[in-house]
């Protein structure tokens, strides 16, 4: 094939929590993504390789892996932008248990969404009139700024506080809580503020901003967490939580 310039040397994590990196040679191509490289290995070199993906276009958030030491969405990461000297080292997301090879166990990540009360709780029924939300209201602007999370777990893998403190809810769950705190239709904000104001909640954040640095959607969970710190503080001082 004329578009093959040379070979990539790709090290992939094999095993579960215990394992090792194994090296493969993969053809280098124009406009190749990291997910393409992993797929090539599985289809042509080792069909026992396990990894996770679905949409391939940066919407589903399922293909995040550690690429050359940094968490990235592999379907939208071009090899040319991350391969150093034609080498790639790809492992599962950090701060999560490993199921097998490149597939991390996302259960702790989503359990914490539940702990942070990340589910919308309606305050009206279908028989009530639909609440009008002004797009230019301060609360809606704050929610909109944080709403496009695709649940990929990259911020969770990048977070130093998650690494140190296994109880910490993490940037994504707190970012989700912040969108709901700013949703005037939600009816469970007292419980939510209690949940994110408890030990392991928003006040555990050190504002290192790795979540913001690596978020593929360019969200700023650190800002959302700062908002939660302010909101919970006032609720605490008023005796609401």
């Amino acid at each position: 094939m004329s578009d093959i310039r040379s070979e990539l040397t790709v090290s992939l994590w094999r095993g579960a929590q215990q394992g090792r990196y194994e090296t493969y040679k993969v053809p280098w191509r124009e406009n190749q993504t990291v997910l393409d490289v992993v797929t090539f290995v599985q289809r042509h070199l080792d069909p026992t390789l396990s990894y996770r993906f679905a949409c391939r276009v940066g919407m589903c958030g399922s293909c995040a892996m550690t690429v050359n030491g940094a968490p990235r969405w592999t379907c939208r990461t071009h090899v040319s932008s991350v391969a150093k000297g034609g080498r790639l080292e790809i492992g599962p997301l950090e701060n999560l248990p490993v199921i097998k090879d490149l597939a991390a166990d996302m259960r702790p990540f989503f359990d914490k969404w539940q702990q942070a009360k990340g589910a919308f709780v309606p305050s009206r029924t279908r028989n009530d009139e639909i609440e009008r939300i002004r797009p230019d209201s301060a609360a809606r602007i704050a929610a909109d700024a944080a709403i496009e999370c695709i649940n990929c777990g990259i911020c969770y893998a990048a977070c130093d506080t998650v690494r140190w403190n296994s109880d910490y809810l993490g940037p994504a769950a707190l970012n989700r809580a912040w969108t709901l705190v700013n949703d005037v239709r939600d009816g469970a904000n007292t419980e939510r503020l209690q949940a994110v104001g408890a030990s392991g909640g928003c006040h555990a954040c050190h504002s290192h901003q790795s979540c913001q640095e690596f978020c593929p959607q360019r969200l700023n969970p650190t800002a959302s967490i700062a908002g939660l710190k302010r909101r919970t503080m006032w609720a605490y001082l008023k005796g609401e939580i």
Partner: peptide
């Protein structure tokens, strides 16, 4: 750290 400790430390 919970919100109570946070408030005391900041204050």
């Amino acid at each position: 750290m919970n919100v109570g400790l946070y408030v005391w430390q900041r204050a």
